[in-house]
Design a binder for these strands. Structure first.
Length: 557
RNA sequence: GUCCCUAUAGCUCAACGGAUAGAGCGCGGCCCUCCGGAGGCCGAGAUCGAGGUUCGAUUCCUCGUGGGGACGCCA
């Protein structure tokens, strides 16, 4: 995944219980003793091998040059300094050591116990954070033309955008999810022609650019005959939005706050304001009867047309207006556009337009999701909306369970070019890791329910957490407390695919605990109550991670 | 031709410039007197090629090769 997202200077990390932040602060305090004006980043990671601690920093490698010491010597100095300063109050760490130049932190039993109590207390808000000043963020995704049903590619961006928005909300930001509807322009006219042809208009028979497919015939029957291209196109677009797109989006469990109509951009004063500004900045000119913008002066490879010689506006012009509206009218601090890879070439001109409007480039993030290549029975399946050969998202969800589809798509980084075989997807659906995660949740729900039904004396009790000593219990507790770190990371780097991975790891940690230890131990009420607390905490975090992914957390399966 | 993405285990994917490159599926073993076996444990198995930067490269840079995508007064 491109790194520039990470380097963008937005910092959402405020919550004080995010472990990586706590460690960073400790290290920074220690570093500043030796280097008062230290400005660099302090990396903190969770090591793969547990003999390297629960958290680890390699900052000593960076500092060794400045301090003119070996990394190990620098690490030792820092580890000693951190140990000294972090002893005040209740300590989070049982050990801080310098090893091979790394500084490794071991969580104290007390810290882990407090975390379980914290989870039980915060419940469905565990992992959420609250910045001092929330940013206003717009996430725009899918935005497919209302000229046909949604395709698989739309689904990929849809799940991604939906979940990214959830993560940003969990990070305490103000988020608006939007679908931009291209409800004017050439493709609407083209849709109109397609309808007229399906209704028997022979005039367009030679035109191969028309939309085809069963849905066109359906629409042709629903729309009254004798309309003009434009009228028929608008009617068809309305119907497609209402009968195909919105229901599909709903079925996928995707939510939108705003359905933004391109047409409305031409109703207020934005059009005059923006085009006037561009003219004043000497960024437009006429050539060959069209109006062009000097985008090549602003980083694009060539100039682009704003108004075609027939007098109609290009999609580009609309998009300039739309982004002006996002930043200058509605005043979003940041906009995230999620596009399919087929639109990537469009990014430079949009960035150029932002520059022309005086909007900082870093305020717009464009996430490109690579296309899913469709494979059917082992052979590539060419998709074309115009030819009507595409797999709709409806088809997908009718074949594959929604939870499984979401988990499957969310598991991939947007950069991967995934091969998607609908037959295989159906087969894999049975083996989808989502059930593994849901099963862990249902398993816990079963135990908790049993306790409740039996009116057992055993209650979930934090005060007995000190009886948790088994290795599988420690591993589970550590995994649980990664959740706030994870959400905070994703809110910054947009690596949504880490969420399903984490959920599966957490489920694994729970299953492992469950197999190795009995939750309810006959005759040991204290231990049982502690283990129940751990199980209940696990259920909460499993549910929170599933919720954020828009996947159900069933109590029974 | 130019631009974007990509190449890791048999397959599908992970890995903030760090320590012995991790999962799932598949494959080979093992585990049901006991809370949900849709489970647990163990094992075999991989960084496209050549240079470079770095204390350290799967990660960054250059070149090559393969794959996907874009280059319109469509969106």
């Amino acid at each position: 995944m491109p790194r520039f997202w990470i380097s963008a200077g937005w910092n959402f990390r405020i919550a004080t219980y995010i472990m990586k932040e706590i460690i960073k602060k400790c290290l920074l305090a220690a570093i500043e003793k030796a280097i008062p004006d230290f400005k660099g980043d302090i990396p903190v990671e969770i090591p793969e091998r547990k003999e390297n601690g629960d958290y680890s920093s390699n900052v000593a490698f960076v500092l060794s040059k400045i301090l003119k010491k070996s990394p190990q010597a620098a690490a030792e100095t820092l580890a000693a300094a951190v140990s000294k300063t972090s002893q005040s109050g209740v300590s989070d760490f049982s050990k801080i050591e310098a090893k091979n130049g790394f500084i490794n932190f071991y969580l104290s039993p007390d810290r882990l116990r407090r975390e379980i109590a914290e989870i039980l207390k915060r419940k469905n808000k565990y992992g959420f954070s609250k910045p001092e000043k929330p940013a206003k963020i717009q996430v725009e995704f899918i935005s497919a033309n209302p000229t046909g049903p949604l395709t698989l590619g739309n689904g990929r961006g849809g799940f991604y955008g939906d979940v990214l928005a959830n993560v940003l909300l969990a990070a305490g930001q103000k988020v608006s999810r939007e679908y931009y509807i291209n409800d004017r322009g050439e493709q609407i006219l083209n849709l109109g022609r397609s309808i007229l042809k399906a209704q028997g208009g022979a005039r367009y028979s030679a035109d191969e650019n028309l939309y085809k497919g069963g849905y066109i015939n359906d629409l042709a029957r629903k729309i009254k005959t004798g309309l003009g291209e434009s009228e028929a196109g608008k009617k068809a677009a309305d119907l497609i939005l209402k009968e195909y797109i919105k229901p599909a989006v709903k079925r996928l469990g995707i939510k939108f706050d705003v359905w933004f109509s391109e047409k409305t951009l031409y109703r207020g004063g934005i059009y005059g304001k923006v085009t006037g500004d561009l003219k004043n900045r000497d960024l437009v000119y006429e050539k060959d009867g069209a109006v062009w913008m000097k985008t090549s002066k602003l980083g694009d490879v060539e100039d682009r047309v704003l108004i075609k010689k027939d007098g109609s506006e290009t999609y580009f012009l609309s998009d300039i207006l739309y982004h002006f509206d996002k930043f200058k009218i509605r005043k979003f601090d940041r906009a995230i556009d999620i596009w399919g890879a087929d639109h990537h070439g469009y990014a430079p001109r949009l960035k150029a337009a932002l520059k022309a409007m005086g909007i900082p480039e870093s305020d717009l993030k464009i996430v490109i999701t690579q296309l899913a290549r469709l494979v059917k029975n082992g052979e590539e399946f060419k998709i074309s909306k115009r030819a009507g050969t595409f797999i709709t998202i409806e088809e997908l969800v009718s074949e594959v369970d929604r939870d499984a589809a979401r988990f499957f798509f969310l598991s991939y980084s947007p950069d991967t070019h995934m091969d998607f075989d609908i037959g295989l997807a159906k087969e894999r659906s049975q083996k989808n890791p989502v059930y593994y995660v849901q099963y862990a949740h249902a398993r816990i729900a079963g135990i908790l329910k049993k306790i409740k039904n039996q009116k057992s004396k055993i209650k979930i009790a934090n005060r007995n957490l000190k009886f948790l000593k088994a290795e599988s219990e420690w591993n589970l507790m550590k995994k649980l407390m990664e959740f706030p770190d994870l959400l905070s990371d994703i809110a910054i780097n947009y690596e949504v695919h880490r969420l399903p991975r984490y959920a599966a790891e957490l489920a694994r940690a729970f299953h492992n605990f469950y197999e190795k230890e009995r939750v309810i131990v006959a005759g040991d009420e204290k231990l049982s109550s502690a283990r129940l607390a751990l199980a209940a905490a696990s259920k909460i975090v499993l549910e929170n991670s599933l919720n954020i992914m828009g996947i159900s957390a069933p109590n029974k399966m």
